[in-house]
Design a protein around this nucleic acid. Structure first.
Length: 339
DNA sequence: ACTGGTACGACTATTACGTCA
DNA sequence: GTTGACGTAATAGTCGTACCA
């Protein structure tokens, strides 16, 4: 008869790493990667998360875009992250610096009244593609196009975009009072890529960074702020999905383990009834460490080596022995398989 | 040192818009 | 042209923290 105790093989499939590698040479064309790791302190982790002591999941999803993607999209290195410039010794993009010019996509005229700390000037941003609703509104506004109520609403929206500084972002807005709806602006690919690159460096922005980024991208600081908020939310959502998947796999593994142990228990009970001779051996206790989930086999009577038990039981496969000499580090037995 | 008010930033849930099949 | 799904910008509400009187 053969008995096999094989507890604790789970960690094989879930390699835990202390630090999730950034995978700088990621060849993923999409620019995203999923890394398995404990990630006690990832570089991109915000201080907020650290302060809250969020339990680090065993699987960490790295949703940051790989740098080469952006670099390849912008070989001319037009896009520069202001705070990165400092770190890299590059020229700092000042408020008067032609940041907007650096980004060709945002060739929109910047309001000359753009203040240092305000976002009014940058409000004339946007971007983007020919389908930019803002551009359409802008055309309507400039051309005094009165195509019905929609055009008027667009004008109101434009006024909000132009006049709406950061101070108006909180509290009641003109839109609410006038009953018009907000207009959603689509960021251009270049803007999104640049924001992604920035997010890669900092998942949160301080006011200076936000302003610099907004100036560089010709966006309102509020837009940059919102983008980072949504980006963090998306990252968290993806991470949650990965965590869920990991927990599901853990559950499956444990279920399978439980099933196998139940089966073994039945076999042992059957052995006990059929061959009572073996029960004269010292009682064996299975001890499981709750932290690392490894199992040690000890005899309750005289701490016989498990190999002796195995030989006495004529086991062809020795049970996995993982002794825990330090009872402090490994609390009392969590399982008693049989006596 | 403690307390209440305020400002601010981050997070979350939700809404609304743009795009695409 | 219409519609539904989906992605995402934007909004509103809440909470925690820092600062100040």
């Amino acid at each position: 008869m053969e008995l096999a105790l094989s507890l604790g093989e789970a960690p094989k499939s879930f390699t835990l790493l202390d630090n999730t590698p950034k995978l700088p040479n990621n060849k993923d064309p999409v620019g995203f990667c999923i890394a398995l790791g404990a990630a006690a302190s990832s570089a991109g982790k915000s201080s907020e998360e650290e302060r809250r002591g969020s339990s680090d999941p065993p699987v960490q999803l790295d949703l940051l875009p790989s740098t080469p993607v952006l670099r390849s999209q912008h070989p001319s290195s037009h896009l520069r992250i202001p705070w990165l410039n400092d770190a890299l010794g590059l020229e700092r993009v000042t408020s008067e610096a032609p940041a907007a010019r650096a980004l060709d996509v945002n060739s929109f005229p910047v309001a000359p009244a753009a203040g240092e700390d305000g976002d009014d000037g940058a409000a004339l941003s946007s971007p983007n593609s020919a389908v930019s609703s803002f551009q359409m509104d802008f055309c309507l506004r400039n051309g005094n196009g009165g195509n019905g109520g929609d055009g008027a609403a667009a004008m109101m929206r434009n006024r909000r975009d132009v006049e709406g500084g950061e101070g108006n972002d909180r509290g009641t807005s003109d839109d609410d009072e006038n009953g018009s709806t907000r207009k959603k602006l689509r960021l251009s690919k270049e803007q999104s890529a640049f924001l992604e690159e920035s997010f890669k460096e900092h998942t949160t922005l301080n006011p200076k960074q936000k302003l610099a980024l907004a100036k560089q991208l010709n966006l309102r600081p509020r837009q940059v702020e919102v983008w980072f908020q949504n980006r963090r939310a998306r990252t968290k959502l993806k991470q949650t999905e990965v965590d869920c998947e990991y927990l599901k796999r853990c559950c499956d593994t444990l279920t399978e383990e439980n099933r196998r142990l139940q089966k073994e228990l039945q076999e042992l009970r059957a052995l006990k009834t059929s061959q009572p001779f073996y029960m004269q051996l010292p009682a064996t206790t299975l001890t499981m460490c709750p932290s690392c989930e490894r199992v040690a086999t000890n005899t309750a009577a005289n701490n016989n080596d498990a190999s002796q038990i195995a030989s006495a039981l004529s086991l062809s496969n020795k049970p996995r022995i993982l002794p825990f000499p330090n009872t402090q580090a490994h609390p009392p037995p969590a399982q008693k398989a049989h006596q």
